[in-house]
Nucleic acid binder design. Structure first.
Length: 567
RNA sequence: UGCCGGAUCGUCUAAGGGUAGGACGACAGAUUUUGGUUCUGUUUGUGAGGGUUCGAAUCCUUCUCCGGCAACCA
């Protein structure tokens, strides 16, 4: 039997192979587990801003639910009132939305404090939990080490009645912070440290951002997370590799409590070159003033990337490209840059901006004084629907100092004495004279222009190798441009001796003046452009009626600069 | 030294006994009024040794290297 060939079968979309979690999910669906349901959750602790590593997790969780017709909850893991705050709750919600995802439910671990308390009493009743009066130091000492078993607490064998009474009094506020904890009775000799009678509840007379002063005991992560998953009917609970050793405990609570068995699956966290990705370190950068805040465009936070000019689609694309696996990885930040360039190349308008503190004035000696003409320029050659706009051209224009060299090396295609270059969308010019001041510094270039070479109606027959951007001196607008570079000077700070802060790049931010074309008169924060030949830029929120500020999102690829470096 | 993971081009990631593929990067060329974009081509990889097999990245075995775990953090 032969198969009839399908028509136009060559356009089959490339089939991406499944990552290991998708394989698990498909196996589960095929086996009829959870009635074929797929329910994930994204569980941030509201104690910091989300970063690109969280974006990986968000895309994974929401993407999986989307792919298999499931749901995703947003759940704040707010079991430690002393570090958590509603400011973070709000920023996290804004960031998840901005990334393009909508959650099925907005939940909080604190919603379950009542249920968790009941779970704790249930374990006490089963003889599987006890109140311990030991101090934190004593508990740490009893814990043993990875290679030596721990010792049992002297309070380990209290009666169920006494434990119940003590736990209720803990809740009632009869004891000060640290006086007692509730622990699970598992196995102090377990090779898994997390099974050595882990703490379930601790006393903290602290105000909680949601429950206020209703509680003075708070559950630990291990006694909240899995049960929260279970309560919500989460089928696949995805987390990073460092929680792998918690999985037996996750399962133990579910088993002993006889509740819905959510399944924890771990994947490797994202590491990016030239930056750090832990909330603790990012908080340090903010608190110690190494950056201007959580949304500083140098930060790998979602807020920072947004301000820098990254788009949600580019971050989702990045998350998709890096994949999901279980091995440690260090992703080249160049891949992130590729993703944003790819999108912005298709979508942004090209504009002229001479990004130079000291631009070079070019005087076109044979161009009539006082004359201004309008030249037409494509908004985006990659998008024919984007149309054209007009730009004023006149006798004096600014170009970047880098676009002229008095003694050019071979293969330098820009302007040099006696050389010709095209001013993009306008005329070919020829450098006739280099004017310098008494210190030898070039102050101006006197050039002639070729009237027959006007873009669009060039009859000059001339061929020039270089085309450069420019702005008309009389029409240019001043703007502040913030040029960002990598936050750190080393690819992988964890591989270096010393603290990561020893490797902060002192040149990660350079603020320069630029002269931009007049069409940019009224720009609004968040708008993106390609500064022709320079890179992609985004209007910063610091922009006001009398001040224009642009952030450089990413440079254009620059093969000339690369060539130079080699030389 | 205990337990749990992991090891495939430079960097990620596929292939689950049957041609080691893709992406990014790099390199070379073509096109180009952005040294951009686009297009074409090239390069480089299964940590090591032994075994099973007609056939091993894949199975077995020994070893090596890397990561995580000893917060009343998550």
């Amino acid at each position: 039997m032969t198969e009839a060939p399908r028509e136009a079968d060559n356009r089959v979309p490339e089939e991406r192979s499944l990552n290991f979690i998708e394989q698990i999910v498909e196996d589960d669906i095929a086996a009829g587990r959870n009635e074929g349901r797929v329910h994930t959750r994204f569980p941030p602790e509201p104690n910091g801003y989300l970063h690109i590593g969280h974006a990986k997790s968000i895309c994974l969780n929401f993407g999986l639910a989307d792919k298999y017709g499931g749901k995703t909850n947003l759940r704040f893991d707010d079991t430690n009132p002393v570090t958590e705050d509603t400011e973070y709750v709000e920023s996290i919600k804004a960031d998840v939305r901005w990334l393009g995802f909508d959650w099925e439910n907005e939940f909080y671990a604190s919603d379950y404090f009542g249920r968790l308390y009941e779970f704790a009493e249930k374990l006490i009743l089963k003889g599987l939990a006890y109140v311990d009066d030991s101090s934190a130091e004593e508990i740490a000492a009893q814990k043993g080490t990875p290679t030596e078993p721990g010792q049992e607490s002297p309070y380990r064998n209290r009666s169920v009645e006494e434990n119940l009474d003590l736990f209720r009094r803990m809740r009632a506020g009869e004891f000060p912070d640290g006086a007692k904890v509730l622990r699970s009775k598992i196995d102090m000799a377990s090779p898994n440290m997390h099974l050595r009678d882990p703490i379930m509840y601790r006393i903290k007379h602290a105000h909680h951002h949601r429950t206020g002063d209703a509680w003075c005991i708070y559950p630990m992560y291990d006694f909240a997370h899995g049960q929260s998953d279970s309560i919500e009917g989460i089928t696949h609970s995805l987390c990073t590799l460092e929680f792998e050793v918690h999985r037996p405990l996750y399962g133990w609570y579910i088993e002993k409590l006889e509740i819905f068995p959510s399944r924890q699956i771990e994947f490797s966290r994202l590491n990016l070159t030239y930056t750090v990705m832990s909330k603790r370190k990012l908080l340090q950068l903010v608190n110690e003033g190494h950056v201007r805040g959580w949304d500083d465009p140098r930060m790998p936070t979602i807020a920072g990337l947004r301000r820098r000019g990254y788009t949600p689609a580019s971050i989702r694309d990045f998350a998709d490209r890096i994949g999901i696996a279980r091995r440690d990885n260090l992703i080249d930040v160049g891949l992130l840059e590729f993703c944003i360039r790819e999108e912005l190349n298709k979508t942004t308008h090209r504009v002229m901006a001479v990004v130079d503190e000291r631009p070079l004035k070019v005087v076109l000696t044979n161009y009539p004084e006082g004359q201004v003409e309008s030249v037409s320029i494509e908004n985006n050659p990659e998008d024919s629907a984007s149309g054209n706009r007009q730009m004023p051209f006149s006798r004096e224009v600014y170009i970047e100092r880098d676009d002229f060299m008095e003694n050019p090396p071979k293969k330098y295609f820009r302007l040099s004495p006696g050389g010709m270059v095209r001013l993009k969308a306008a005329y070919i010019i020829k450098c006739e004279e280099v004017v310098k001041d008494e210190t030898g510094e070039i102050t101006e270039l006197r050039c002639s222009y070729i009237p027959e070479s006007r873009s669009g109606s060039d009859t000059s027959g001339l061929k020039v190798q270089g085309t450069i951007h420019w702005v008309s001196v009389a029409h240019a607008l001043e703007a502040e441009v913030r040029l960002y570079d990598r936050l750190l000077t080393v690819e992988d700070p964890s591989a270096e001796e010393g603290d990561f802060k020893d490797f902060i790049n002192p040149k990660s931010l350079e603020v320069v003046r630029a002269y931009v074309e007049p069409s940019l008169q009224e720009v609004h924060p968040g708008e993106r452009f390609q500064f022709m030949r320079k890179g992609y830029f985004c209007v910063d929120p610091d922009t006001s009626a009398d001040r224009m500020v642009f952030n450089r999102t990413v440079t254009l690829k620059d093969t000339w600069a690369k060539e130079q470096k080699k030389g």
